[in-house]
Design a protein around this nucleic acid. Structure first.
Lengths: 211, 211
DNA sequence: AACGTAACGGACGGATGCGTCCACTTGCCG
DNA sequence: CGGCAAGTGGACGCATCCGTCCGTTACGTT
């Protein structure tokens, strides 16, 4: 297919993409084109001929991640157990975002001037909505959880890119597990077992009372 | 006190601080000194005389926020109801972080070259640990929740600064409520009421099983 | 009212990122 | 094996930010 490129050109192109993926994942979309070229051991002109704009480079570099996003939500929607499907989507999406700062930036449009995944966001959003609906219909996910809440979760996951890489995956999984625990339908046995003093700071409606 | 400044100087200094607070909150610590000077309608030299380095400006601009951080955790530690204290700390800290991108950057050392709140982080961390311990001793907070988990929560909260300002506070409060629900000790009635198919993706230990 | 000085803003030199142009190299095909 | 077009890296002009210097303004004092 892409044999239309001369072998040396193809090799350089691959090195550029590899360098871009590394740098985007580590440091987000802010890395300069020069930095990428340097890491790929290539001149700026080479980089710009293959990818005239940063947008082009970003799109190509995150092809895989976009595809995986699609797999994640479609797997979730196809899972025979709606609740498990929902949980897997949450955990896998959070992991994906936490591992790749650049992809999260791109997907969340942190740099709208560079690239905007609007179309993909919308497409995936639709599927996620069905995942949510299924889990709620099965009576496992709290009914007041909306798609907006899911978006907020993604934003939260974005912050996890800053966690130390060594322990990040474990931390993200714990975080996801905490959240999922809070998203289950409350056990049928409500209230009771109150603790100490009562009283609410009065800071607006809550999905669940604290006590 | 600060009557040592000429009145025009004092006025300019106040405008600079106001502009810095606005811009830091909106856009994080990356804003340039020039941008701040422009917003304050002041020349660069004026800005640099009052605050020779960006670090100086950041420290002064976030004095209030640091103090509020202190209040939050100390209030939490002093609350007669340990669980309510813990919940309030979570919610108030998340709100503070979500409202002020720059403060979160500074507190999390996102730009260590500019400023590092290491000392404050450590000091506040100690108090937070007691808040956690009290809530656990009262049997309300799951015992496997550690200080590291709290740090991860803060990182997550950082991502919420990107939420649309209009609905951000409400979104953060919902998010906090979900989390808190997941952090309560599990109700004494365990398992039962299983849903659909079983089976775990096998992605490591979890605080709680999903079903 | 006049003066001395604190305070001001514009302008400067240096550094860096940007995207493009160009003379040289090199893979490929006849 | 020789020629040409594709491919390359360095250099260029432009823009922005940086921190500092300096001539001018205007506050506060005598």
């Amino acid at each position: 297919m892409t044999h239309l490129l001369r072998v040396d050109a193809r090799e350089n192109r691959d090195r550029v993409l590899a360098a871009a993926r590394e740098l985007f994942a580590e440091s987000g979309l802010e890395v300069t084109m020069r930095q990428i070229a340097r890491r790929a051991d290539v001149g700026p002109a080479t980089l710009y001929r293959r990818f005239p704009t940063k947008r082009d480079l970003v799109l190509k570099a995150f092809e895989n991640e976009l595809a995986e996003c699609g797999s994640i939500v479609h797997d979730g929607a196809a899972d025979p157990d709606p609740w498990r499907g929902f949980c897997d989507v949450i955990e896998r999406i959070l992991l994906l975002n936490a591992r790749n700062q650049g992809f999260t930036d791109a997907f969340m449009s942190a740099h709208p001037d560079v690239v905007d995944f609007e179309a993909h966001r919308e497409e995936l959003g639709r599927v996620v909505s069905t995942v949510i609906g299924r889990a709620q219909a099965a009576g496992r996910l709290r009914p007041d959880f909306g798609f907006d809440d899911f978006a907020v979760l993604l934003l939260a996951g974005r912050g996890l890119t800053a966690a130390p890489a060594a322990t990040r995956d474990a931390a993200v999984r714990r975080f996801a597990a905490f959240l999922i625990d809070g998203l289950r339908v409350a056990d049928p046995e409500p209230s009771t077992r109150a603790g100490g003093a009562a009283g609410d700071g009065g800071s607006g409606p809550r999905p669940h009372p604290r006590s």
